[in-house]
Structures are given as C-alpha cells and as structure tokens.
Design a protein around this nucleic acid. Structure first.
Lengths: 241, 241
DNA sequence: CGTAGAATTGATATATATCAAGCCTAGTGG
DNA sequence: CCACTAGGCTTGATATATATCAATTCTACG
C-alpha cells in the first residue's frame, strides 16, 4: 500500500488517471526526470492558504482536504483530494486554500515554474489537466447543490456515495457483496465538508445506522449493504445518477 | 448596448476576456469563419440539462444562469454567466445543467465538434480555456463557503459584492461616487443562487436597505453607497479581499 | 382599469445549531 | 498490567435562523 519513494512512473498506481494519464513513454521519461515525492503524516498541513506555492503535484496515496477559513473561524472544505487528484494551479503564485493530510499522504510533485514550462509544450499534459479541472468543476457544482439545498441526512448520504463511487471505479471488480468504505475523516472533517456541525453529523450517521442504511464497523469504517438504497437517501435523481 | 449580429471580433466587447483573449489576428480570422451569434430573450432556456450539447460559446452581452434541479423540484444555481463567460464543455456531449437567459442574451457560438478540433491545434485557446476554467473553479469554491457557512445576510452581501466586482473590472474607471448595480435577477433567481427562499432574500434585502448599507432604486437596480461597508457584511476576511 | 406575476411583510413551524454532559478508545506512564 | 488521560464521538435539552404558510401590496402590461 505504501509506495516506495523512488517509484517508477510505469509502476505508479495513478498512472492512468492523473495529469500524466495521456503521456507516452518519452513524455513520461521527461516528467520522471523532474518529479519528486513528498510524504505527509495524517494531520500535517501540506499547504497554507496565502503562502507561496512552490510546487504542484498529484496525490499518489492517502486523502487530503482543501479548506477555507473565515476570519471568525468558520471553516468550509472545498475539496476532498483522493489519489490521482491534482494540487496547485499553474499560473498562480499563492495558494488560495489550506491543504491538510487527512490520512498519511504521498504526493508526486513538480516545482511550479518548470511544470508550467512543461505544460506549454506537452499538450498531453495540459489537455489532461483541462479535462481534470472541468471534472473538478462539475464536482464543485454538484457540491453546491448539496450545500445549498440538501438536508443533513441527504448530505451524509451524498458524501458516502461520492466516496464509494470513486473507490469503486478504482478497484473495478464487480462487488458481489457489501461495500466496505474506508473513510479516514473525523466527524469534524465531515462537518466541515458538509456545512454542518459535528453533532448533526453524528446524529445523522447514528440514525442511518439504526435504520440499517449503513452499518458501522470501526468508527471510521462504514459498511454499505445496499448502495442503491443509500443513493435514494441522497435525494438525487436516481435515473441520472 | 445591443451588439449587431455580424460583429467583427476586433470590435467585440469581450475580445480581451473570453476564450479568444490570447488569439492573434490570424487565429481570430480562423474563429471568425466558424463563429455564429445567437440571441435569447429574457426567460428563454438556452440549454436543457440532459440534452445533447451541439454548440459551445461565450456570453457577449446579458446574464444567464446555470442551474440544477432535484427530482422533487429543489433548485440550486451553480453559476452566474456574465459577459465573456463560456458555456459548454469540450469533450462532453450532454449538458449537465440548465442554462437560462436572465436578461436578453447574445452568445458567440461554435459548433462543438469543430471547436474541439480547433482546441487541439490552437494552444492560445486551450490555454485560455484552462485558465478560465481554473477561475471558475475558484469561484465555485468561494460559493461553497457561501452556501455552507454564511448567514442569509452575508449571502446577499456576497452576491452583490461579487457582481459589483465583475462590473467594476469591466468599466475600469475609478468610481468616484455611488456604485449603481444593475442586477437583472428576480428574487427567485437570487434565492436559487443563495440557497435560500424568496422570502428570506426579500427580508434581508429590505433589512440592508433600512440600515443604509444599500439603497433600492428600481426593484432590480441597487445602489451601493459604500462598497467597503458592504464587504464587511460578507463576513469575508477584509485583508484578503 | 384590471389582472398576473413579483415582491413584501407577518405569524408560525421546523431543522439544525448551540450548550452541556457523558462515553468510548487508543495511547501513556506509573 | 492497569489506571489515567485526551481526543473523538455520542446523546440530550434548548435556542435560533430560516422555512413555510398566508395575506397584502406593488408594478408592468394588456
């Protein structure tokens, strides 16, 4: 599970989903020359909002969160960074958000300036980055619906389903039985993502548990006996989803 | 104010902000060959969610809204499209959201397939599109904070400030006196954007009026005597903003 | 002038926040 | 090995912001 720090691109788990997904051998070799890995322990800050962003990179393993804080301390998570997701933005010097490791995290990094130069003459990278950015934009908009219009229960269900979907698309095996979700988020992190308080998150999770929609293994491990049932609880249009 | 439908790119008001912003003469000529204009009246649907998206394009004048609807009718706006904003996404065949003209709208359009081909060999366009998409992503994330954590009053203030900022950056003249905002949105449209009900929007606007933070001209025309005061009401960190 | 949609305003209901207490669980040190 | 602790979580009681329901009032338009 823990990738070695001298991982070759060819052996990389996110090879086919990250910014480098469309690169050929020669292009990979070029990236390989300048990439470097970084590791963070659960809880560590990866980027501070407002600081200079000296590097960009992809999440290789683990989960990180992006969040924004108002003066008075209110916090809103604006993104959940799963393996293959990209951190940082070309053409911007300071980070707009805090990025924090929710679990142990490994990043595959590039110094920002050289990466921007690569972008200019590797359309396979810039094209993939555009595609990923458009996907993120869709995800952000879906989340606007969650935050603006959904009930607490629907928000919890939406979070679980969206993570379940991402995990499922990773290990493509057709799951015959219960989906077991590893969600390394504290109730506090969930509340920050969902625009709720810890207490409301806790109550709704308990409630869904009591009703058998989900089952709680460990406090951070959730069992989904019937994904379709959970999807109904998201409030989304089932036909589209 | 109303652009002629045979507008030349060189005379176009959004020339320096839209996807074509970085194009040189030769590139513009190429776009000019395939572009076409469309006009919509206030209230008209421009795109239906789920339908095939046969074209992409830029807002030349007017305001449009992007929104998403749940089965049970709950609506959330996920974007406000002002002049120079781009509609549609290369590499996707069906529209994920409804797009509606809030005022009379003129679009500068391209058929999707040819546009995608252009993208491939005009890095000035694809690069600019990436940049615009990253900006939209930031805007969507800022809105997640609004929807997840801000009070009704702060939401109203945030909407007004964000539109005021966009307008101000258009006519760059240093405003010496009151900012006059033309906001062609019904209370319903605002409530859909803000994740509130019409009644709450109305009450908060009245309240801000009573306190002199804003003044109401016409029902759709708002006067901002002191932008800094309004910014305080957004709850945002003033030092950053 | 009359009508319809938009907006305002008031009374009340309700979902979620807030305040508060106690309970797990993993890790620590005696 | 076993208290002991601290952080995370759960649960309960109450407060509150916003939704909901309902009645007017505006405004534009035929």
């Amino acid at each position: 599970m823990t990738p070695r720090l001298d991982l070759r691109c060819a052996d990389c788990g996110i090879r086919h989903r990250a910014v480098c997904a469309r690169c050929d051998e020669a292009e990979l070799a070029r990236l390989e020359e300048v990439k470097f890995y970084r590791r963070y322990e659960a809880g560590q800050k990866i980027v501070w909002a407002g600081d200079e962003l000296s590097f960009v990179g992809s999440v290789v393993s683990g989960i990180a969160t992006m969040s924004q804080t108002l003066e008075d301390g209110r916090v809103q998570m604006v993104g959940l960074l799963l393996p293959s997701d990209f951190i940082g933005r070309p053409g911007r010097e300071t980070a707009p958000y805090d990025v924090t490791a929710a679990s142990d995290v490994t990043l595959c990094c590039f110094r920002r300036a050289p990466f921007e130069r690569l972008l200019a003459d590797m359309p396979h990278v810039s094209g993939r980055l555009l595609e990923m950015t458009l996907d993120e934009l869709d995800a952000a908009r879906e989340w606007m619906m969650v935050l603006g219009r959904k009930t607490a229960r629907e928000r919890i269900a939406s979070l679980l389903v969206s993570v379940a979907r991402r995990e499922a698309s990773f290990d493509l095996m057709p799951r015959t039985h219960d989906l077991r979700l590893d969600l390394p988020l504290t109730r506090e992190a969930m509340s920050e993502y969902l625009g709720l308080t810890i207490e409301t998150v806790s109550r709704q999770i308990s409630q869904l548990g009591r009703e058998g929609v989900i089952a709680l293994d460990d406090r951070r491990r959730i069992l989904i006996p019937d994904l379709d049932r959970l999807i109904v609880e998201t409030g989304d249009d089932v036909t589209v989803a």
